[in-house]
Design a protein around this nucleic acid. Structure first.
Lengths: 126, 126
DNA sequence: CGGCATCCTAGAGGATACTG
DNA sequence: CAGTATCCTCTAGGATGCCG
């Protein structure tokens, strides 16, 4: 039996935690979830417009993955032209605080990281 | 001046937040940081052994990136055979709570995600 | 021991065109 | 509008071998 781990260790390649990270620890996933966490509901085209630099392929792919994992809900309106709305599921909502924290951290500490990079470059130059 | 953003928006491709996510929102980075957050100090070979399924190339690459961004500290002991120890910097430590939360979330909700996947497969089959 | 350097391949991911 | 399909490129990342 491969399942059932004595203690959850992220370090084990077989551990589900690593598989979850494959979903969560992805740039586009974080951003999409973050957008949805702020706005109740978003249409496909809104997401594409609001998120800078994402291709439509990546957007669709990310949404599918999040939907498959039960984090995002997809509602199709049978109208023409078509209308599709995306929102977080209850499970997805349990992530919002975490996502907010991550984005806040990124915003707060960006200058320190940038400074570290400069220092690193200088150190490696001579 | 490209820098200096009115309000930090993750959605803007130019926003530093996205750049930080490139570092943080990476599976191996999360895991390496998590290991270091638990153990003060780790040697290279310990990290490689403890983390299942990481290649040495990826490990080195991840460590360099984290070092460059000021999250991880690398200390070399001039002995032979060589000895290198990695640990978190103060900046890196500010991430530990977040990382713990992420890993905890992954552990807690894995079964729900798995259930969602099964549901998704069934739905798409017919 | 703790790495680089090199080679190689699968898959990520962009651009473009077409469709219900 | 909200995608799918196709093609094509480029790079992430494994395997292997060498070095201080």
């Amino acid at each position: 039996m491969v399942r059932n781990f004595p203690e959850p260790d992220v370090f084990n390649a077989n551990c589900p935690t690593q598989q979850v990270l494959e979903t969560i620890a992805d740039k586009w996933s974080v951003i999409v979830l973050y957008v949805l966490s702020q706005t109740e509901t978003r249409r496909y085209s809104e997401l594409q417009r609001v998120i800078g630099g994402i291709s439509q392929k990546m957007l669709t792919q990310t949404l599918r993955k999040l939907e498959r994992d039960g984090l995002v809900m997809r509602r199709v309106y049978p109208v023409v032209p078509s209308k599709v709305e995306y929102s977080l599921t209850p499970l997805g909502y349990t992530l919002t605080e975490l996502l907010k924290a991550i984005c806040t951290w990124a915003q707060t500490h960006w200058d320190e990281i940038e400074a570290a990079r400069v220092r690193y470059e200088q150190g490696s130059d001579r």
